[in-house]
């Protein structure tokens, strides 16, 4: 079949040009040096979240905060010496349904991040039969990204990019912002602190836990 011949030729070309030999030989460097290590990244990321929240009026408070990781790959292979952190804040389902959170906050953050000189990397909207979802992504000069995601839930996700992995003991607890009680049921970072979340920390400004949530 012609299609098979064409694809086989393309495959051969790929392997010759970018398959193991050339790519491995020429691009076997370490990933570009990042501004932070994993342990160092959490503080500025949490500050970025706090800064975003500070500009949001009549803020109802987030329901939960979590720290997630994704693999970093190099030459198409996952590199376990690097990780990409995503600090995730999410509103409750009730608050996620309000126009203020789904619509007004997008406009506020767009203006706030633009004024701050961040690059707006994504600003889109998709209209479905039952709801309209939005994505607003801004990138800071230090490489930290902020994604305000309006879906079934609405959340603010802060990305670190690929950073060198730190030992578990090196990662310090950073109290949450946006009304999540440090060490409370919505503070979902216990994986990183198997001996227990240090609860002596105050929540990051600007908000203390909203009434009835602490």
């Amino acid at each position: 079949m012609k299609a098979r011949l064409r694809t086989a030729a393309a495959a051969a070309a790929l392997l010759a040009a970018s398959g193991c030999s050339v790519v491995d030989d020429l691009s076997g460097d370490e990933p570009p040096e990042s501004e932070y290590t994993q342990a160092e990244a959490y503080a500025p990321m949490e500050e970025a979240a706090a800064d975003a929240v500070a500009g949001l009026g009549d803020f109802p408070g987030f329901e939960q905060r979590s720290w997630a990781e994704m693999p970093c790959s190099h030459d198409g292979v996952d590199d376990d010496e690097y990780t990409a952190i995503e600090v995730r804040y999410r509103f409750s389902i009730a608050d996620s349904a309000t126009e203020q959170v789904r619509d007004q906050y997008v406009a506020t953050l767009r203006e706030h991040w633009t004024d701050a000189g961040y690059e707006i990397a994504t600003d889109d909207e998709v209209e479905g039969a039952e709801r309209t979802d939005r994505n607003l992504v801004a990138v800071r000069h230090d490489g930290i990204s902020l994604w305000y995601a309006v879906g079934g839930y609405v959340g603010l996700y802060i990305g670190s990019g690929c950073v060198p992995v730190s030992e578990a003991g090196e990662i310090e607890y950073i109290p949450p912002t946006g009304g999540v009680e440090p060490g409370g049921p919505g503070d979902l970072v216990e994986e990183y602190f198997p001996d227990g979340i240090p609860t002596t920390h105050e929540a990051l400004a600007p908000l203390n836990p909203p009434e009835g949530r602490a």
């Binding site: 990781e69 994704m70 970093c72 790959s73 030459d75 990409a84 995503e86 994504t122 889109d124 994505n135």
Partner: peptide, 21 residues
């Protein structure tokens, strides 16, 4: 090569943007 694994990105160093789409 790198973009072959970028579909669940939370962002990376070269272009630290989550793969929202």
């Amino acid at each position: 090569v790198e973009n072959h694994s970028s579909y669940w990105d939370t962002g990376n160093e070269e272009h630290p943007v989550a793969n929202t789409t």
